[in-house]
Design a binder for these strands. Sequence first.
DNA 1: CGAGGGGTTGACGCCGATCAAAGCTGGTGG
DNA 2: CCACCAGCTTTGATCGGCGTCAACCCCTCG
Lengths: 251, 251
Amino acid sequence: MQNRQIPALKESHNPLSINSEWIGREYCENCHFCKLFSAEPLGSDDANSPQPVDHFLFPSGSVIYNNNTHRKFIYTIRHGMVKLTNNAHNGGSRIVRLLGPGDSIGLELLVGNNSYHHTAVAVDNVDVCRIPVSFIKKTIAERPSLHNQISHQLQNQLDLADQWIVALGTGTARQRVAHLLLLLDGFFADGNGAFTLINREDMAAVIGTTVETVSRMIAEFKRQNILCKYKSKNSLYTCNTSMLNTITLNA
Amino acid sequence: MQNRQIPALKESHNPLSINSEWIGREYCENCHFCKLFSAEPLGSDDANSPQPVDHFLFPSGSVIYNNNTHRKFIYTIRHGMVKLTNNAHNGGSRIVRLLGPGDSIGLELLVGNNSYHHTAVAVDNVDVCRIPVSFIKKTIAERPSLHNQISHQLQNQLDLADQWIVALGTGTARQRVAHLLLLLDGFFADGNGAFTLINREDMAAVIGTTVETVSRMIAEFKRQNILCKYKSKNSLYTCNTSMLNTITLNA
DNA sequence: CGAGGGGTTGACGCCGATCAAAGCTGGTGG
DNA sequence: CCACCAGCTTTGATCGGCGTCAACCCCTCG
């Protein structure tokens, strides 16, 4: 029987056994919350107490948090890529967002029933600040401007989600893969315009097709030099964005 | 050539000539913002000035606002259903959200470059409160608790968008239509558990298929008595949610 | 060197897009 | 009242994209 069921991600992608590495306790220069914290000194009563912002490394493939679990931390990404997955109740799984440096995850703990709404997994080696919800709430109370940061983050993720629906959920597999490559190129390219290609399984979970279909499209793009290895090392790639854009438009 | 292109909605669905009807100037009992406004009296300087919250009726099919336009109003829905559409840049169009009473639209004006991120169209006759952005911002300044309302709305819409990606963008056409019916039944059913079926074109724009495919699925569900006319009048329907749920799971 | 995981490619069949035509329904005018 | 029309819905026929299953390649690691 043929259906568009997305297979559940293999266990190898959720290796709970891989532990994150605690790096230190510090303010972060690269994320909104931490920047705010460090930019404006806190109230005098807090000035002496150590700030509970921890810095963690999550190795590629490790789980940052699980859907529906009740923990008390929000994370901001300093470096690397994080995927947020939702498992459809039929057993499948779908990636609903790819996030990178500057993005915050787990914001849903600030409103509602304080359980995570996704499973967050490190796509590559990920570098995060872990901030306790209680600390954010306390800080908000004494500095309402933080609210704007949160609204911005939420609105930004909402825009991403809508873009996801339209660009990655519409059109042929060929068009969707083209869209995904443009997204990776736009958001995750390094200074040289090269980006790391995520694996086929993740690509399939992003655009809602099978691994084989994605592989065919990627292989075809490689053969057409639309997608080129940038350096043999590290699976860095560059892409011809104008050709991808035309593919996006036509078929 | 076969592709999953979504055709642009016909002009009949964007009849700018249909004008909204101004009803009055009043506080709304049915929406968060207005409820807040009326629950807690504003500062003394505002108490005497008339509140600029207007009440409008938008007839079915009329445009509430257009994507990328710069206007200065946020709307909260009192009654009826509103669709938010995004046109993929290849000319197609896709419905990214269906919203109903209690939901707010246009919140993106509160952050960023104050232009709307979608086109909002009344699916049936819609009853809204129109609130100026400047008024909301002013009110927020003197009552930061409103921030929580906004965060809630944003988080709620983010959850809806994610659900949209997973439930309505994954699986066979049959499964997606089943999901859509469950969504309509869950969110838009009246006291008797009956809901108004949206037209096939909108359904197709929701789940990302063609009108014909949707029609086939709906017709099949009708024949199987999974979807039944509730009253001959007004295209009200009821559905067998348990059977729809099993369809959702299988194929 | 064998094992295992990820990527690529092939063969085949089905779902759903496409094109086409015929019912249905509500609105309009004679 | 009916004829007529426009728009929506339904149904049929055809065919291409993509899901499915399977084999094979390549790389890494024990």
